[in-house]
């Protein structure tokens, strides 16, 4: 449902990323998202980075809407619709590896908190690594990759994942990050025979399974996803290749 809420907390995660907390009605599952309305500006889908009584979104300032969100302060008012989508489905005792690329790690936080997991945080460089202290509260095995080697493993998150899954045994990989990363993460999981659940992203209008602006091969990212299983993803011809633009035309990624 819809809710108008006041921003209850605001925490800086990095030079361009902030986490906003708010209290909204209802429960949310790990991996679900909300539509966030910045009055007078835009409304955008955001994964929940915390699903407790105070729910959180973690926002990287990249476009008009996210920059406008960064300009808001505690007590300012935003609109929230949702939560929407299916979320992750984790079984007890599953050995889980969580792989987050960039701000994508924030969408995995609720699952990491609830279930525990080994974690890979991937980022371009040291300054872009976010949420490491929070992740360490819930995980004994945290690895970091940076493209330039300024922190942890030098290389991308998928290269580090391959190294980690060859040295350890996992039942499930969960992931969120740029589509190019998820494309190769999916491939790595398929190649090594590990089940995966990846949180995907598309331009959205309704967020509630109706308008079709986020479909991938006829599957709605908002309602059938945003979390898709490895076998589902294998069938998605458009994953990693094609997206719909706001007019509904297919565009190559």
């Amino acid at each position: 449902m819809n809710d108008i809420v006041r921003i209850a907390s605001c925490r800086k995660e990095s030079h361009d990323t902030k986490t906003f907390g708010f209290v909204m009605k209802g429960n949310a599952k790990a991996g679900q998202f909300v539509m966030v309305w910045i009055p007078g500006v835009d409304e955008i889908p955001m994964s929940l980075s915390s699903t407790g009584d105070t729910k959180c979104i973690t926002v990287k300032a990249i476009g008009d809407a996210t920059k406008a969100l960064h300009g808001l302060r505690v007590n300012d008012v935003i609109g929230i619709r949702g939560p929407y989508g299916n979320g992750f489905s984790l079984k007890k005792n599953q050995r889980v590896l969580a792989v987050g690329g960039g701000v994508g790690i924030s969408a995995l936080m609720p699952a990491i908190r609830a279930h525990g997991a080994d974690v890979i945080i991937g980022a371009r460089n040291k300054a872009e690594v976010i949420m490491e202290p929070e992740v360490r509260k819930y995980s004994n095995n945290v690895r970091i990759s940076t493209d330039d080697g300024s922190c942890g493993f030098k290389g991308n998150a998928v290269e580090l994942t391959k190294e980690v899954i060859s040295a350890n045994s996992y039942d499930l990989v969960i992931g969120c990050g740029p589509e190019i990363m998820l494309y190769h993460l999916h491939k790595a999981c398929v190649d090594s025979g590990i089940e995966c659940q990846l949180s995907l992203e598309r331009f959205m209008k309704c967020g509630a399974g109706l308008c079709g602006s986020c479909v991938m091969d006829g599957m709605r990212v908002c309602e059938d996803g945003p979390v898709f299983g490895g076998r589902q993803i294998t069938k998605l011809k458009e994953f990693g290749r094609i997206r719909l633009d706001p007019a509904g035309a297919k565009v190559k990624l």
């Binding site: 449902m1 819809n2 539509m35 309305w37 835009d42 409304e43 955008i44 609109g79 619709r81 209008k205 309704c206 967020g207 509630a208 109706l210 308008c211 602006s213 706001p246 007019a247 509904g248 035309a249 297919k250």
Partner: peptide, 22 residues
């Protein structure tokens, strides 16, 4: 532009504005 959709009890109000690829 969004918001182009909102839920109400027993329905939805939308103003997608005829998006289409031509």
């Amino acid at each position: 532009r969004n918001p182009s959709f909102i839920e109400i009890p027993y329905g939805y109000v939308n103003a997608m504005g005829l998006p289409n690829p031509g």
